[in-house]
Simulated assay, not measured.
Amino acid sequence: MKWSEFSIHTTQEAVEPVCHILHEAGAAGVVIEDPHDLIKEWGVDLGEIYQLSPDDYPEEGVIVKAYFPVNDALAALIEEMKASITALGDLDIELGHNKVLVHEVAEEEWATAWKKYYKPVRVSNTITISPTWEEYTPSSEDECVIELDPGMAFGTGTHPTTVLCIQAIEKMITPGDSAIDVGTGSGVLSIAAAKLGAKDVLALDLDEVAVESAKINTELNKVDRQVTVKQNNLLEGIDGEYDFIVANILAEIIVRFVQDAARVLKPNGVFITSGIISRKKDEVKDSLLSHGFTIEEIVEMEDWVAIIAKKA
């Protein structure tokens, strides 16, 4: 089978929404080439467990590559994806060069090459994320390993927003907490919460592909009894009282359900939000404050922000 590589030169801010568009279009694999991964700092005790080659990365911006089977519908699909990506600018998302290149590749060329971008990464004091095909031995008894099959999304390690969320969960969660993960994606944050002591986690995502991926990953990590994965639009129709909510999605989406987060959280419940580009930090902060939250901490990595808030 022949495959087409759809490559777009964009910005770090646009990576997640661009990847979502490519997933929705049916990409059979996505590679993210972000030069920030070459200089990423995880803190004194943390670090990447592998070496990356600068030759694989652009000098600036981010290159996102997606792979599609070559067929009669491909030309129209490419034009649809270009239009959808360009429309992200209407959401005030900086697209950078927004330059697209398309060329054919042999199946064997892409089917294994992307694995060089995805290796075990220590992302917090106790959590290491490892792809399923890597042999990794924990360095201590208190180290938790999350195994992920990245499915339709492959990256160069772990996105800063995910790292910030996991570190915040590790800091704030109390064993026995009930939690919600809004926009769960691969399910990595739900798995982390369960491994760090949450008694039950409700993992929500509107995307059917994400729901199936999260189910597979929770089973793989043997937390499927603690984590319930469900297709749902944000917190619509969710009732009950929870100790903990985490949401790693765009700032524009977070502000839409802050009121619902306040509704389902217990008094003093924790709300961790990330996926926030630095210039939109105040927008999310103001929304949290206006709905009765207090800001416990704001943490940043590169151009990304996570906010830890509590319901008053």
Results as ranks from 00 to 15, higher is better:
251 A>C: 04
68 F>A: 15
302 E>D: 15
44 V>F: 14
264 V>C: 05
37 D>S: 12
154 F>W: 14
55 D>P: 03
68 F>P: 14
226 Q>G: 10
281 K>D: 15
95 L>A: 12
231 Q>I: 00
17 P>S: 15
51 Q>I: 03
150 P>W: 04
159 H>W: 09
164 L>A: 08
240 G>D: 10
182 V>S: 00
21 I>Y: 07
15 V>M: 12
214 A>K: 01
124 S>Q: 03
18 V>A: 11
2 K>T: 06
275 G>V: 06
277 I>H: 04
197 G>F: 05
205 D>P: 10
251 A>I: 00
158 T>Y: 13
263 R>V: 08
257 F>N: 04
185 G>I: 13
283 E>L: 08
213 S>P: 04
24 E>R: 11
247 A>Y: 03
31 V>Y: 12
73 A>P: 08
260 D>K: 03
278 S>P: 05
184 T>K: 14
85 I>L: 08
49 I>P: 07
122 R>Y: 12
282 D>N: 07
261 A>E: 08
172 M>S: 11
2 K>W: 11
109 E>T: 11
226 Q>E: 12
33 E>I: 06
88 L>I: 01
293 F>S: 01
221 N>Q: 07
149 D>K: 03
295 I>R: 10
28 A>R: 02
300 E>Y: 10
120 P>W: 04
25 A>V: 02
216 I>Y: 02
184 T>W: 15
200 D>W: 14
1 M>Q: 13
276 I>R: 00
276 I>P: 01
70 V>M: 13
288 L>F: 05
311 K>Y: 01
22 L>V: 03
222 K>I: 14
219 E>N: 07
19 C>F: 14
252 E>G: 00
125 N>V: 07
191 I>W: 06
184 T>C: 15
187 G>V: 08
195 K>G: 04
299 V>E: 07
307 I>E: 01
140 S>Q: 13
207 D>R: 06
223 V>L: 02
71 N>M: 09
153 A>G: 13
127 I>F: 12
199 K>D: 10
238 I>S: 15
302 E>F: 15
311 K>G: 00
13 E>L: 10
273 T>C: 03
284 V>F: 07
168 A>I: 07
155 G>W: 05
210 A>N: 04
249 I>H: 02
305 V>I: 01
140 S>E: 12
81 M>F: 12
101 L>D: 15
62 V>P: 08
266 K>C: 06
258 V>G: 00
243 D>S: 00
62 V>T: 11
220 L>Y: 08
247 A>M: 08
117 Y>F: 05
122 R>H: 13
91 L>T: 14
229 V>A: 06
175 P>W: 15
237 G>F: 03
131 P>L: 01
128 T>D: 05
188 V>H: 05
27 A>N: 06
304 W>C: 05
206 L>I: 14
109 E>P: 09
76 A>W: 04
134 E>Y: 11
32 I>D: 07
195 K>R: 03
280 K>Y: 05
290 S>I: 01
216 I>N: 02
87 A>P: 07
40 K>A: 13
117 Y>Q: 00
